[in-house]
Amino acid sequence: MIAVTNVYCVGRNYKKHAEELGNDVPSEPMIFLKPSHAVCAMNDGTVNLPQNSGEIHYEAELVLHIGRAYEPGIKVEDIVGSVALGIDFTLRDVQSKIKAKGHPWTAAKGFRNSAPLTQESKFPGFEALNEGWFSLRKNGETVQRGNIRNMIFDLQTLVDYIGEHYGLGEGDLIYTGTPEGVGPTQAGDVLELYWNEEKWGGCTVG
């Protein structure tokens, strides 16, 4: 498993996802954090999640693994060491309650194992990323399918925004946002992440 420092996550970065949850489309990147302890390997093992806190939703995402420190003007292809796929697990009932109170999202987003991550792959270049699709299969059925061309804020915008506002360094991860199709998962579900038709990782929900 890779060494991880900061885990940045981008909320509502796909218009149709924001709409499916009844949220406004943001005018600038919406960034939240997960603890590094949220990250775990999607190596076809069991990922244990809190099963007594209401609905747990999956959110499949392209993940950037930062390979060097951010400097103004640096290009995505120069700062990203590799890419992976991941899931931003969300305690949806908990999130609804704390959002209504105006409280931080940590309780709904930052629990242990809430950011499982697949194997890494060398940054393939923008042409390959733009032409490729990532998808999540739940018990063999495709439930999410995304392409970075549909992002509201592109990868360069995300790197610049996070780097300038918060800093980026070697070992940081950026979960770049999820497309439409998020939904509930429960113990026993098998979740698999694919890049095009190649499986990059999977897990059984525990």
Rank of each mutant, 00 (worst) to 15 (best):
108 A>N: 10
108 A>S: 15
108 A>Q: 08
109 K>H: 06
109 K>A: 08
109 K>N: 07
109 K>S: 04
111 F>N: 10
111 F>W: 12
112 R>W: 13
112 R>T: 15
113 N>G: 06
113 N>W: 05
114 S>L: 11
114 S>M: 09
114 S>P: 07
114 S>R: 11
115 A>F: 09
115 A>K: 08
115 A>D: 05
116 P>K: 08
116 P>D: 04
116 P>A: 02
117 L>Y: 07
117 L>A: 08
118 T>G: 01
119 Q>W: 12
119 Q>S: 15
120 E>T: 15
120 E>G: 15
120 E>I: 15
120 E>Y: 15
121 S>R: 15
122 K>Q: 13
123 F>C: 05
123 F>M: 05
124 P>H: 00
124 P>N: 05
124 P>W: 02
125 G>N: 06
126 F>H: 13
126 F>R: 10
126 F>D: 13
127 E>F: 07
127 E>Q: 13
128 A>Y: 02
128 A>I: 14
128 A>E: 13
129 L>E: 07
129 L>T: 06
130 N>R: 14
130 N>Y: 14
130 N>K: 13
131 E>Q: 14
131 E>L: 12
132 G>Y: 04
132 G>N: 01
132 G>V: 00
132 G>H: 00
133 W>H: 14
133 W>K: 14
133 W>P: 00
133 W>T: 14
133 W>G: 00
134 F>S: 02
134 F>C: 02
134 F>M: 10
134 F>E: 06
134 F>A: 04
134 F>V: 02
135 S>R: 02
135 S>P: 09
135 S>L: 01
135 S>K: 03
135 S>D: 01
136 L>E: 01
136 L>V: 04
136 L>F: 10
138 K>F: 02
138 K>P: 03
139 N>D: 15
139 N>T: 00
140 G>L: 06
141 E>W: 05
142 T>D: 10
142 T>K: 14
143 V>W: 01
143 V>S: 00
143 V>F: 06
143 V>H: 03
144 Q>L: 03
146 G>F: 06
146 G>S: 09
147 N>F: 06
148 I>Y: 10
148 I>V: 13
150 N>M: 10
151 M>Q: 13
151 M>N: 02
151 M>K: 07
151 M>D: 01
153 F>S: 05
153 F>Q: 11
153 F>W: 03
153 F>I: 07
154 D>Q: 12
154 D>Y: 04
155 L>W: 00
155 L>C: 04
156 Q>A: 11
156 Q>T: 07
156 Q>N: 13
158 L>V: 06
159 V>F: 04
160 D>A: 12
